[in-house]
Amino acid sequence: MKPIFEAEFRFYAELNDFLAPPQHHHSLPYRFAGHPGIKDPIEVFGVPHTEVELIIVNGLTVRFDYQLRPGDRVSVYPIFKTLNITPEIQLRAAPAPRFVIDVNLGKLAKHLRLLGFDCLYRNDYHDREIVAIAADNQRIVLTRDRRLLFAKRIDHGYWVRAVKSDQQVIEVLSRFNLYGLIAPFARCILCNGKLALVDKQDVLELLEPKTKLYYEIFYRCTECQQIYWNGSHIENMQRHFKELLTG
């Protein structure tokens, strides 16, 4: 029979969202045999590896391949939003702001596309498809299903806490520091294709009479050919998001 050892884990900040309430902000014992990789006990506590940015063991930074040893004191930190840490201690390279979004977050996908972000979404995605897309195309998974983030092939992902879509948008923008990258009229809200300026004469026959009369600037999706213009509905959405983003 293998001897049983013990290490001590402490999770910080929003990582406590994944723990049972009695475990919040406490040092937690972990009993083990052998020398497991440190990612395994972190996920045993219920914390997805995608939510972890920094691991410190006995005062030294380690990576996910570190093998746990008897008596280790482990501190686990989430993504730093306002503090830069050096590349030598990061667990993974910083991701590009490209997303794949699960079936429970359709409104979030639409809103992020409206703000110009590359978001793959279908309402019939299976979990295995999301995992494959994230791994093969280096996309960040956004999900309301924390279990999805335990998939080994996912490097970058985020469990969206908010329930309402407006708050979800603010949460994602803040989490990935995207405010400076907002670019309306960059993406089609229907298919995620890129939008391009188009001459009014090229789409004239597709427009309603009032649209022809009152608007001069038009965009067309390079994928699905959907036509966009800065009408009242777009103005209302932009005003809505401006209010959200400025508090």
Rank of each mutant, 00 (worst) to 15 (best):
G193L: 03
F176Y: 05
G180I: 06
P184V: 00
L206N: 12
R98D: 11
G193A: 02
K107H: 15
P97K: 09
Y215K: 13
E171Q: 01
I154F: 09
K152T: 11
I133E: 05
R146N: 10
Y179H: 09
R122G: 07
L142E: 04
Y179M: 03
W159K: 08
F218D: 07
W159E: 02
I189E: 05
E171I: 00
T211L: 01
F117M: 03
L190S: 08
L148R: 07
K194Y: 01
R187Q: 01
P97Y: 12
E208K: 10
P97R: 10
V169S: 02
L204N: 07
V100S: 06
I170F: 04
L148C: 11
A186L: 02
R147Y: 14
G180Y: 02
K200E: 09
R122V: 12
L148G: 14
E129F: 12
L213G: 06
P87N: 11
L108K: 13
K194F: 01
I182K: 07
E88A: 15
I189D: 02
D202R: 07
N137C: 08
D124F: 08
R220F: 02
S165R: 03
R139K: 13
C221R: 01
Q167E: 13
I89Y: 14
I182F: 10
I189S: 02
G106D: 14
Q201Y: 04
L173F: 10
Q167Y: 03
D124P: 06
F218L: 10
A196E: 07
L83K: 15
T82P: 14
G193Q: 00
L207V: 00
Y179D: 00
V141H: 14
K110T: 15
Y125I: 06
L207D: 05
K107N: 15
C221F: 04
E88S: 14
R98E: 14
G116Y: 05
E171S: 04
L195N: 07
D136Q: 12
D199H: 08
I170L: 12
L112G: 05
V131E: 13
A94I: 08
L114H: 11
P184D: 04
N137W: 08
V141G: 08
H126T: 14
K194Q: 05
I85G: 10
H156R: 06
T211Y: 01
L213F: 03
S165Y: 01
L207H: 04
V172A: 09
T211C: 01
N177S: 06
R139Y: 09
T143N: 07
A132M: 05
A134S: 12
A109G: 14
A183W: 01
H126Q: 15
C188K: 00
A134T: 01
Q168P: 07
R147P: 09
V172M: 04
R220Q: 13
V198I: 13
T222P: 02
A162I: 02
A94S: 13
N192C: 02
L108V: 15
L204T: 02
V100R: 04
R113S: 05
N123D: 15
I217E: 14
T143S: 15
